[in-house]
């Protein structure tokens, strides 16, 4: 299997790091894969730029950071501006159409979805946005199985959140589907 190199980025409070942990944990605990998750962040707990790297592979991962992602998630314009130039040629950029206006000059598959809007419509708040993004990401990349993510969500969160999490995950998958048939 080729290494999946994810760079997940946005601003503090969007749940970018949680999303990264969920993805990597699903790979390790439920698929017997090897994964490393790391992050860089500034002093702000809310706002500011957040970045988390995830590498998933079936062989040992030594260097834990992602220098050139094949999969970028950008949830703010600032993050997109900073990290899109790093995408490996032909890689994928997943972004929120209401939050990000991506550069069209970059050799990457642009996969924009109105995720925040959809989450707001469905849940009337944005807490589950990161889970929705994860649903789209997993659907588009196939890095791990959706059931693995479901299992991680169940183990990590209180039962009260299970239903909403599943719904958010499904919402992301739904938004991503048109891209699958297009390819």
């Amino acid at each position: 299997m080729e290494k999946y190199r994810f760079l997940l980025s946005g601003s503090g409070g969007q749940g970018v790091i949680t999303m990264a942990i969920l993805l990597a944990e699903a790979a390790v605990l439920h698929e017997g894969l090897i994964a490393v998750q790391s992050q860089s962040y500034g002093p702000e707990a809310r706002g500011g730029a957040t970045r988390s790297d995830v590498i998933i592979s079936d062989s040992e991962i030594l260097f834990p950071k992602v220098l050139q992602p094949n999969y970028l998630v950008a949830m703010t314009n600032e993050a997109a501006g900073k990290y899109m130039p790093l995408i490996r040629p032909g890689g994928m950029c997943i972004y929120d159409t209401d939050l990000v206006q991506p550069s069209r000059r970059i050799d990457a598959m642009l996969m924009g979805m109105p995720m925040q809007k959809a989450v707001l419509e469905k849940f009337h708040k944005t807490q589950a946005l990161n889970i929705c993004v994860l649903g789209a990401l997993v659907t588009l990349t196939g890095a791990v199985k959706m059931e693995s993510v479901e299992q991680v969500l169940k183990a990590r969160f209180k039962p009260a959140f299970h239903e909403a999490n599943s719904a958010a995950l499904a919402l992301g998958a739904e938004l991503a589907k048109p891209f699958l048939s297009a390819n």
């Binding site: 944990e25 390790v28 490393v36 998750q37 790391s38 992050q39 834990p64």
Partner: peptide
Amino acid sequence: EVLGHMRER
């Protein structure tokens, strides 16, 4: 810091 914050199996 990298080791402290990095996650792995």
